[in-house]
Write a protein that binds this DNA or RNA. Structure first.
Length: 219
DNA sequence: CACCAGGCAAGTA
DNA sequence: TACTTGCATGGT
């Protein structure tokens, strides 16, 4: 029985193991920063394939810019994003975000992302419909800030492998990553992408000991 | 048919 | 503060 490594060592080992197994993902969940933000809101408790359908509908109508989206009727947005589920709620949330963006920054993402990270995160969280995961997804994948995104996959994998408990809170598990890894946006981006790939490909079964899982050796 | 998917806010006690 | 419920489509 080999000794359990320290948290920093374990997190680095896990990353190295995933990277070795799957290679760099070069993952980016959208074509533009604004599309990343839209995707982050639409994917709340929803499969990414359904989000892609909704994004395609928005793109077809050329609404994937802050100005065009903000100008569209919420009811029209709702009908376009229908495949992503919760469409009335999410249409309102998209509007809440663009309203904030225009009121606060004149619709400019450059201006929004020039805010210092702590302020930016606090203000994103103040938008109705933007919670911790959505805020961090925007910070990391749209703004390029080093915030680790904790999603259902991350929680599930790490709890199944006995690394956290199933009810560990968002901030607690996030701190685990943030405090034990270098604050590097590219690293956080790649790490989270690898976790998503692992979850989708290998951890569908509720069996944390599945043979092909790269984490197998760390139990 | 049941169950789940890259959450969040509002309601209840 | 701590729990519960509503939101909704599409894939397996």
């Amino acid at each position: 029985m080999k000794k359990r490594p320290s948290a920093p060592a374990l997190l680095k080992e896990y990353y190295r193991s995933l990277l070795t197994s799957f290679g760099p993902q070069g993952w980016w969940p959208g074509r533009t920063r604004f599309e990343v933000i839209v995707g982050a809101i639409l994917t709340q408790n929803t499969s990414w394939t359904n989000v892609e359908k909704a994004i395609r509908n928005l793109r077809k109508d050329r609404l994937l810019t802050p100005g065009r989206l903000h100008a569209a009727e919420v009811s029209r947005l709702a009908s376009l994003i229908r495949p992503a589920g919760y469409f009335n709620i999410k249409a309102g949330r998209l509007r809440n975000f663009t309203s904030f963006l225009f009121k606060d920054c004149g619709g400019s993402l450059d201006q929004l992302f020039r805010k210092d990270p702590a302020t930016l995160r606090r203000e994103l969280l103040a938008v109705n419909g933007v919670g911790p995961e959505t805020a961090d997804s925007i910070m990391l994948y749209a703004a390029g800030k080093p915030e680790f995104v904790i999603d259902a996959y991350t929680k599930r994998i790490f709890s199944r492998h006995g690394f956290t408990s199933p009810d560990t809170g968002y901030d607690e598990i996030k701190t685990l990553f943030m405090d034990n890894l270098p604050r590097d946006a590219a690293l956080f981006n790649e790490y989270h992408a690898l976790i998503v790939k692992t979850a989708k490909d290998y951890c569908k079964t509720k069996n944390p000991l599945c043979d092909e899982c790269p984490l197998k050796g760390y139990l």
